[in-house]
Nucleic acid binder design. Structure first.
Lengths: 126, 126
DNA sequence: TTATGTGCAAATACTTTGCCTTTAC
DNA sequence: GTAAAGGCAAAGTATTTGCACATAA
């Protein structure tokens, strides 16, 4: 267990966002200037395989990471700011399983992302 | 309107699958050997902007294309064969809108992919 | 004719890998 | 001491782009 790995994990557990490899690299650089982008990539990969991190690929063509959590959730991405909100809805989960079954499949995974723009103030409480 | 563009469109309307740029290129090469991969990329891009094609990015990191259709649908991907099944479910569509609203957002887009493995024969009719 | 499209090769962006050095234990 | 991890630079993969030539209308 090296300092590089410790710092990478810390960078992801402290902030609850979804940085890509470059963002992790920048963040980690400030804490430990002795680290290379290759190490970041290798470590993120390693931690994903160990289920310590989860890897997502939202629109934009980069992999983004977050700390793995016990509870499954999906994501809503604010298309104006890039801000990400996590949510979970049992009804949707159930429907996905049901649909897969109807089509003759065991559901082994899914990807659900909502893309939205925030309500304006005047539209609140609707 | 050039021969290259005609052939690309034909390659996608004849087969109802979801090929990536390279697959389209190979397919088109057989019909019109005078075409470059760059033209394929440019044309796919062009047709997507014109809403003639739809672009998807399933797991695997490549863009894949299908003919645009009037009716929206999502995809179930067979993780063993890569085969893709299209489906549509109003209940899921409605829930997505509802969830976005609850979180304070207008839903402007979404991505829903199910990944599954086919039932074995013995498991049919369950 | 002439604006538009194409082919080729080079450039880009992100990620992975080979190889040699460094380090944790 | 030794196996594992890291740094650097090069390679890999998918896609985009600059530019000179070709072609549809």
């Amino acid at each position: 267990m090296t300092d590089q790995r410790r710092v990478i994990i810390r960078a992801l557990s402290n902030s609850h966002d979804h940085p890509d490899a470059t963002a992790v690299y920048k963040r980690v650089k400030q804490l430990n200037s002795k680290i290379s982008l290759a190490t970041v990539y290798r470590t993120l990969c390693l931690f994903e395989e160990a289920r310590i991190l989860e890897r997502h690929e939202f629109k934009g063509g980069k992999f983004r990471y977050e700390e793995a959590s016990a509870s499954h959730h999906d994501h809503l991405i604010d298309t104006q700011t890039g801000h990400i909100i996590e949510f979970h809805d049992e009804r949707i989960e159930a429907l996905q399983t049901e649909i897969a079954h109807k089509l003759g499949y065991h559901l082994v995974g899914h990807r659900l992302e909502l893309y939205g723009t925030p309500f304006k103030k005047s539209e609140r409480e609707t």
